[in-house]
């Protein structure tokens, strides 16, 4: 069975809302110290930051399926992660943004993401390849 996880440790909690760093205009510090706004981040920023960090490794996580959750306004996304294509399930709010390689921020409900975070998003779809992280030491 696939591993069930959450992007930020605990199960999604709709009442708590999304993390503040996804709000448009949030200042993000890259591994080399450069500051960028969240909406200006590019694929290369993540890739280069992971290379600089030494401890983290970028994985390609392909969206295998997107299903409704019992939790209101949430979905369960199944990813195929890394070279081993490990199956990982994540329960997130529909507006939760993922960064898709070569495309940028994407969510299951882009309109809601834009409404809540002012962050422009594309529609996250099956087959999209998202950026995810693992610790190199886990390998």
């Amino acid at each position: 069975p696939p591993t069930s996880t959450s992007p930020h440790g605990s199960p999604s909690s709709p009442s708590a809302g999304l993390p503040p760093f996804f709000m448009k205009g949030s200042i993000i510090q890259l591994a080399d110290g450069e500051l960028k706004r969240v909406e200006d981040l590019r694929t290369e920023d993540f890739v280069q930051s992971a290379e600089v960090s030494g401890e983290l490794k970028i994985d390609s996580s392909t969206v295998e399926s997107i299903e409704c959750s019992r939790t209101p306004n949430a979905v369960i996304i199944q990813f195929s992660v890394g070279e081993n294509k490990a199956q990982v399930c994540v329960e997130v709010l529909v507006e939760y943004p993922f960064f898709v390689f070569g495309q940028g921020w994407s969510s299951c409900c882009p309109d809601r993401t834009t409404q809540l975070l002012a962050l422009s998003c594309a529609k996250l779809s099956v087959g999209d390849v998202c950026i995810s992280l693992t610790f190199k030491s886990l390998k």
Binding site: T5, P19, S26, L56, D59, S61, V88, F99
Partner: peptide, 25 residues
């Protein structure tokens, strides 16, 4: 314009989910 003393700065890895598969061996 950004006011440096009041604007939080977040690390880049906060934005990316850690999707660590369970090791099968």
């Amino acid at each position: 314009n950004v006011e440096p003393r009041s604007v939080p700065v977040f690390p880049w890895h906060s934005l990316v989910p850690f999707l660590a598969p369970t090791q099968s061996d």
